[in-house]
């Protein structure tokens, strides 16, 4: 039976790369995001290329009221759920002194509260499966490494470590696995405002002397949610070309 996969931020860099890999595997997809036009375009592309079932739903993870309708679509369209991949999120960069309370709360909602809500809804479907399910949250290498000017973002992302490990313990008896992926510097829209010089500088700091691609992250996510990883839960994995190794944090 085809795996049923729910992806947030599906039209973003890592989300889209995941959607393509799952579609190539023949999975049934529920793609969610804020932009209905982009979602429709992605749905058409994937259905044309891979002949798979692709459904879409509007889900802005900043909007608490969007969650339930999106998961009601899962019930109607997919009749269950095996995999949750939470890719939604923005990179907030501001110094401590210039971080506004509205932006701080938004980052916590976007990365942390939303992940808790997603886990609440997704687990209710996964519990019904005899084989359980798999959840992936996306953190960042800055969560453990820290980054000047990204304290709020790093704070929100680091909270996902506690969430992942706690949910792995709480949901493990139901065969629901929960893992965390920590991308390094991945070339997506999130970081397109970085100058070429800055990008080159970061690339030089990695062991592999290059920046990451969305597909580098998606391949790990695909593995972690596959049956091949059925004994892996409560773990965090960096996909960073060795960036944190050279910075001495891992």
């Amino acid at each position: 039976m085809a795996k049923r996969v729910f992806i947030t931020g599906a039209t973003g860099g890592i989300g889209k790369a995941c959607a393509r890999l799952y579609a190539a595997q023949g999975a049934s997809l529920m793609l969610t995001g804020r932009d209905s036009t982009k979602l429709s375009e992605l749905k058409s592309q994937l259905e044309d290329e891979f002949a798979v079932k692709v459904e879409t739903a509007i889900l802005d993870v900043n909007q608490v009221d969007d969650f339930k309708p999106a998961f009601m679509q899962v019930q109607k369209q997919l009749a269950g759920l095996d995999i949750l991949v939470n890719c939604a999120g923005t990179l907030y960069e501001s110094s401590l002194m210039t971080s506004k309370i509205e932006d701080i709360q938004l980052q916590l909602q976007q990365h942390l509260t939303s992940s808790i809500l997603l886990a609440q809804f997704a687990s209710r479907f996964m519990v019904r499966n005899t084989h359980g399910g798999s959840m992936i949250f996306i953190s960042s290498v800055v969560a453990m490494q820290g980054s000047a000017g990204q304290s709020v973002y790093a704070c929100a992302k680091s909270g996902l470590h506690g969430l992942t490990k706690s949910l792995a313990k709480e949901l493990g008896t139901q065969q629901i696995r929960v893992n965390l992926v920590e991308p390094g510097f991945i070339e997506t829209a999130l970081v397109e405002h970085y100058s070429q010089d800055k990008k080159q500088q970061i690339a030089e700091q990695t062991c592999l002397k290059r920046l990451g691609k969305a597909d580098d992250v998606a391949q790990l996510i695909l593995f972690l949610t596959s049956d091949a990883a059925s004994y892996i839960t409560g773990q965090n994995f960096a996909v960073d070309g060795g960036l944190t190794l050279t910075n001495g944090t891992h």
Partner: peptide, 21 residues
């Protein structure tokens, strides 16, 4: 608490509803 989660999932599945938190 674990059985409660299973119960909620079972009720939602049986009646094809989604309960509020």
């Amino acid at each position: 608490s674990t059985a409660h989660m299973v119960l909620i999932a079972e009720i939602e599945s049986q009646f094809e509803i989604m309960l509020d938190t």
